[in-house]
């Protein structure tokens, strides 16, 4: 029984990170309508910025981390403005945008490699035995992750549901044309969704860097899991993406109860494929089905 609660705890920890990535990704996708692989690079930049400010320069965490998130946010907005926006006008933009986002991802990863070198880095926080909660062993930092993520998500949910800007975002993601007719500034929406999404990625990067460690190539698996979670949850719908993240996290961790550990990554992709087969609009998706499949 203790094993089960441990696996669930693990699932929640992993799921929190996936959900953060998925939420950010989904938020951007809902407005921009393309799969932005460079989102993974934003995650890495968030992590390394935090490392730079807190560990190398030596600022206290409560200063370093918000600045790191700001850096990630800025990066996401910049990339969108310089590389993606101009391509949005093209006729065959989907392929071009996908490729451009891959290119930016590679570019940023290489720059990080050049600046920080290839060695694995860590914050070197003291290691202590975890607390026993309901049979599961969780460290304080992991507890912080499990609590912070939902707090952030509730904040986002409130933002989307209650504030004017949030409603405008949702309207734009539903139907850009009508939203524009209603007087919503689409460019502002893009700006906000990109910024917010990137901030989430930056936060995810910092949490992972603290809890585990950092290396320049950490972005690819993060964006893939985020993508998967976003689709499984229901593309274009941020709360759905969040739930998708937790779903994937739990599935992976419960899955390796039976399967050899080497197949863990494959689990989320098998789930992805199953969803694409039978329910491409995702778990919680609603009317987006016709955009996904026939």
């Amino acid at each position: 029984m203790a094993v089960l609660s441990q696996l669930i705890a693990n699932g929640l920890i992993a799921g929190s990170i996936y959900a953060l990535m998925a939420a950010g990704f989904s938020m951007m996708f809902s407005i921009q309508r393309f799969m932005n692989i460079a989102h993974g690079a934003t995650y890495v930049v968030g992590a390394f910025s935090a490392y730079l400010f807190a560990k190398i320069i030596g600022w206290p965490f409560w200063i370093a981390f918000p600045i790191a998130i700001a850096v990630a946010t800025l990066l996401g907005i910049l990339i969108n403005h310089i590389v993606f926006e101009p391509l949005q006008k093209e006729k065959d933009k989907n392929l071009a945008l996908l490729l451009a986002s891959f290119g930016m991802f590679l570019l940023i990863e290489s720059i990080i490699l050049m600046i920080f070198g290839a060695d694995v880095k860590s914050f070197g926080l003291p290691v202590e035995r975890g607390m026993d909660i309901l049979g599961a062993i969780i460290t304080p930092l992991q507890l912080i992750i499990i609590i912070t993520a939902p707090v952030v998500f509730i904040g986002i949910w409130l933002f989307l549901k209650k504030t004017l800007v949030g409603k405008a975002l949702r309207a734009t993601s539903d139907n850009t044309v009508i939203a524009a007719t209603m007087g919503i500034n689409i460019r502002a929406m893009t700006f906000i969704s990109t910024g917010l999404g990137s901030a989430l990625a930056g936060l995810a990067g910092i949490l992972v860097a603290l809890e585990q460690n950092l290396e320049h190539s950490m972005g690819m698996s993060a964006i893939l899991k985020g993508l998967t979670a976003a689709i499984v949850g229901g593309i274009g719908n941020v709360p759905a993406a969040i739930l998708g993240g937790y779903l994937i996290g739990l599935a992976e961790n419960l899955g390796i109860w039976y399967l050899p550990s080497g197949y863990k990554d494959a689990i989320s992709f098998v789930i992805l494929i199953i969803f694409l087969l039978f329910r491409p609009q995702g778990f919680f998706g609603m009317k987006k089905r016709e955009e996904v499949a026939e």
Partner: peptide
């Protein structure tokens, strides 16, 4: 049944 980016992701998963 899949289209566009979804097909991309499914095949990538494969």
């Amino acid at each position: 049944k899949l289209k566009g980016d979804y097909l991309a992701l499914g095949t990538l998963g494969f």
